Amino acid sequence: MTTINILYASTEGNTKAFIEKLAAVAESNGDGFSARLIGDETEYANETQPYVAFVPTYLTGGTGTGPEVKEIFTNALGDYIAFGNNARYLKGVVGSGNRNFNIQFNLTAIRYGKNFDVPMIAAYELRGSKFDAEKIYNKIKPYFGE
């Protein structure tokens, strides 16, 4: 049995709803599943197991991807990953957002991948679908061994 470990940020509940779909897929495949919401009130801890981060895209400033565009609402997750040796256990990032924002869709996950030198594994829109959860489960499972 594989145990899939997830750290995530969720501001409006979209990512949390997707994580619940992903948990159902993992459990239906006989895998363990652990997911923790990381927010401003989360106390820092030292991670000791591999995990994948799920991060929605919330941006302010400008209309493109230049330096004037700032991350909002997800900074606590980035700070948590940067704490101690936590980044060493990060295996990749899955992002979400609204495709109406074109080039900014999924920009936060792309930036996390670059900042922490891990792959941006996949992206889905808003709350995602059951199909998205199945597809992403199959993409992240290899990061946790068999």
Rank of each mutant, 00 (worst) to 15 (best):
G64I: 12
Y137E: 07
T57D: 04
T48N: 07
E68A: 13
G95F: 03
R127M: 10
I72D: 12
N85G: 15
N106R: 10
E134F: 03
F73K: 13
N75F: 10
Y89R: 05
A53S: 14
K70Y: 07
F105W: 03
A133R: 02
E125M: 03
R99K: 14
F73T: 09
Y51H: 02
Y80F: 15
P50V: 06
T108D: 01
G62S: 14
A53M: 13
G78F: 01
G113N: 03
G64R: 11
I121G: 01
T60Y: 13
V69K: 01
E71W: 08
Y80I: 09
N98S: 02
F54N: 10
L77W: 00
S129H: 06
Y137R: 07
E134Y: 03
E68G: 13
Q49N: 08
I121R: 01
V55C: 08
D117P: 00
Y124T: 08
T74L: 14
S96P: 01
G62N: 11
A76V: 06
N75A: 12
E68Y: 07
G128M: 14
G66R: 07
L90W: 00
Y80W: 14
F54R: 13
N98C: 01
D79G: 15
K130N: 09
F116R: 01
G66W: 06
A133Q: 04
P50I: 05
A122H: 02
A82H: 00
R111M: 09
V55M: 07
N102H: 12
N75V: 10
G66T: 10
V118K: 00
V118Y: 02
E71L: 15
L77K: 01
N85W: 08
K91H: 05
I103E: 15
P56D: 10
Y112M: 04
Y112E: 03
D79W: 05
N98Q: 01
Y58F: 14
F73Y: 12
I72T: 15
K130G: 10
Y80P: 06
Y58Q: 07
R99S: 12
P56I: 14
I72Y: 15
G97W: 05
R99Q: 08
P56S: 15
G61H: 10
L59V: 15
Y58R: 06
R99W: 09
P56L: 15
F73D: 11
N100L: 11
E125C: 07
G128Q: 09
F105K: 02
F116N: 00
Y80Q: 11
F131Y: 12
G61A: 14
N102P: 04
Y51M: 03
G78P: 02
G78R: 01
E71I: 12
V69M: 04
E134L: 07
I110S: 08
Y80E: 12
P50Y: 09
K114F: 03
Y124S: 09
L77C: 05
F101P: 02
T57R: 03
